[in-house]
Amino acid sequence: MAGDSRTSEIEARGSNETDKRLGQELAQAQARFAENPFSSARRRDLIEIHKSIGKRYLKHGDKQAALAHYEEMLMHYEGLCRHHKSQCEIEHEICICQIEVGDLRRALGDEVGALVAYGEALTICEKLVASEPQNSCFQRALVIAKWRTAELDSPNNKRLLQNTHDHLLSLQGRGELKEEDIWMIDAIKEQLMANGPSCSVWQKVRSFFLPDA
């Protein structure tokens, strides 16, 4: 028992030191960015630090604090997009971040805010897939954005779910669906046969991008 207590104290101290270090790194990165807000490298530094801090809050179960950092990430991704001619990869990062933001809002009970984020992701993914239909990362993000939107868009739920299911079957038929994603086909079919998303499915898909909280 004494050994367990000692281990817990060490872990807590290490965690506090990490939090302090990340806080200092964030302050320094913010100061550097303020000196040159047109620097993509400095904006990238801020994104990575916000991501690290956001994941730590998720690990400790503080979704509200994590959301604040993911929304900061989103703002900086959008800033990168405004200053780059080659935007596809940045827009893909924005799409993923929008889905992450949507997942956090949904977990916090803000389904309206989540639907807005999913809708933004869907719009971006449709554009990316239209420009590069062979890009598997873009296709996967589009599938997830459609699925997420379908679950919260009640008037269009069945249509969007069916569209997502057909999209997955099409990818599978062309040999472009990864083996680890094949389960999605049956999961969406299950939802189509039900009256809404099952709890078990949401628990599984909620961590497409976000680390387990």
Rank of each mutant, 00 (worst) to 15 (best):
D186G: 14
F38K: 13
R44T: 15
T149E: 05
N195R: 10
D45Y: 06
K59P: 06
G113D: 04
G175N: 09
L169H: 08
E25F: 05
Y77C: 03
D110V: 04
V143Y: 06
R159M: 07
R105V: 04
A107H: 03
A141G: 11
E25V: 03
A27Y: 00
L171K: 05
Q30W: 03
E190H: 15
L152I: 04
A130R: 10
H167Q: 09
E111W: 03
S170G: 09
L171C: 08
C137P: 00
P211Y: 02
C95S: 13
A68E: 10
Q191Y: 05
R6S: 13
S154R: 13
K51S: 04
I90M: 12
A150P: 02
A145I: 01
A29K: 03
H69T: 08
G175T: 06
S170L: 07
Q162S: 12
I10F: 06
H83A: 12
E151S: 09
E9C: 05
D212T: 10
Q162N: 13
E35M: 13
I49R: 03
F38P: 00
S198N: 12
H92D: 11
L142V: 02
G61H: 06
P133W: 03
L192D: 05
L177H: 02
R44H: 08
R21Q: 14
Q203V: 11
E100Y: 04
E120W: 00
E17V: 12
Q64E: 15
K204W: 06
K85V: 11
W147M: 14
S5L: 15
R44S: 11
A145D: 05
L171W: 01
Q28S: 14
N163E: 14
Q203R: 13
L26G: 04
L80I: 03
E111P: 03
Q28G: 09
R159G: 02
K55S: 12
L210Q: 00
P133F: 03
S198I: 06
L115E: 01
